[in-house]
Design a protein around this nucleic acid. Structure first.
Lengths: 122, 122
DNA sequence: CGGAATCCGCGACGATACTG
DNA sequence: CAGTATCGTCGCGGATTCCG
C-alpha cells in the first residue's frame, strides 16, 4: 500500500481540509497562541491579538468553543468577567502549530527571497 | 525572556500568519500533498485534486512556484508537457503538514462530537 | 465589560469561453 | 495539453451602533 499524504483520495472534505478550514482563517491561530500562554479574558485577548475586531474575536472564540478547543467561563460579578482557556483538546493543537511556526521562522527568508527572484524575472 | 508562542507580540504579520496565509487557502495543502507522492503534470493534478478548477490550480501552482516550493518544468514536445515537482524547500513543508494531518485524524471525531453537543444546547 | 445586530466592501473562488 | 481572460457570485471580515 502506498502511504498517501493528505488522505486518499485528495478530496475537499478530508480531515486535513476540515482542520485547515478551521485554523486557516485570520485569527484562530493567533488566539490559540495567546491562550497557550495562559487563560485570558475578552478584553485581554482583544489587546494582545493585535488588529482583531470585536466581532471577529467573538466569532472566532464561539467557533473554538463549539469545537471543544476553548472553554468559556462567565463569572457573575459586576461588571461581568469572562475567562477563556484552552481545553485539553485545544492544548494538543499547540504542538502541531508550533511545528508550523518553526517551519515558518526557518524558511520565511528563503520564501521571501524566492518571491523577489521570481518577481524580478517578470 | 519568555518564549511566546505565535511570535511576540501577536501581530498579524508574524511568520506563522504569513505561512498560514499561504497554506490556509482551499487548495495549496492538497496540491502539496499530491506532489509529495511524486511529480505530476497539470492534468494529473487536476484529476487527483478533486474539485479544483483549472483557474485555481494554475493560480495556486503559480503561487507555490513563486514561493520556491514547487518547480515547473516545460518539456517542449507536441503536445506540450508540463511537470510539477516539489523543491527541496517544498519537501520540508511536508513534515509540519503531516503533523497537522495526524492531529486532524486523531481529533476530528472529538471536534465533531463537541460541535453536535454544542449545537444541541442551542 | 462583553457582547449582539446590521450594513457593506472586497477579494477569493467558480464557470465559461477562448488560445498557442 | 496547458494554459489565459473575463465575468459573476459569495462570504469573510471591518466599521458602526446598540444592549444587559
Amino acid at each position: 500500500m502506498v502511504t498517501t499524504f493528505m488522505g486518499d483520495p485528495y478530496v475537499a472534505d478530508c480531515p486535513t481540509r476540515r482542520i485547515l478550514d478551521r485554523i486557516g482563517d485570520r485569527w484562530t491561530v493567533l488566539i490559540i497562541g495567546v491562550l497557550g500562554d495562559g487563560d485570558a479574558r475578552f478584553s485581554e485577548l482583544r489587546r494582545r491579538v493585535e488588529g482583531v475586531s470585536q466581532k471577529m474575536l467573538t466569532q472566532t472564540l464561539r467557533g473554538l468553543e463549539r469545537d471543544g478547543l476553548v472553554r468559556r467561563t462567565v463569572h457573575p460579578e459586576v461588571p461581568v468577567r469572562v475567562e477563556y482557556a484552552l481545553t485539553d483538546a485545544g492544548r494538543t493543537l499547540l504542538e502541531p502549530l508550533r511545528a508550523l511556526q518553526r517551519w515558518s521562522i526557518e524558511h520565511l527568508g528563503d520564501v521571501t527571497a524566492a518571491q523577489e527572484a521570481y518577481d524580478h524575472t517578470r
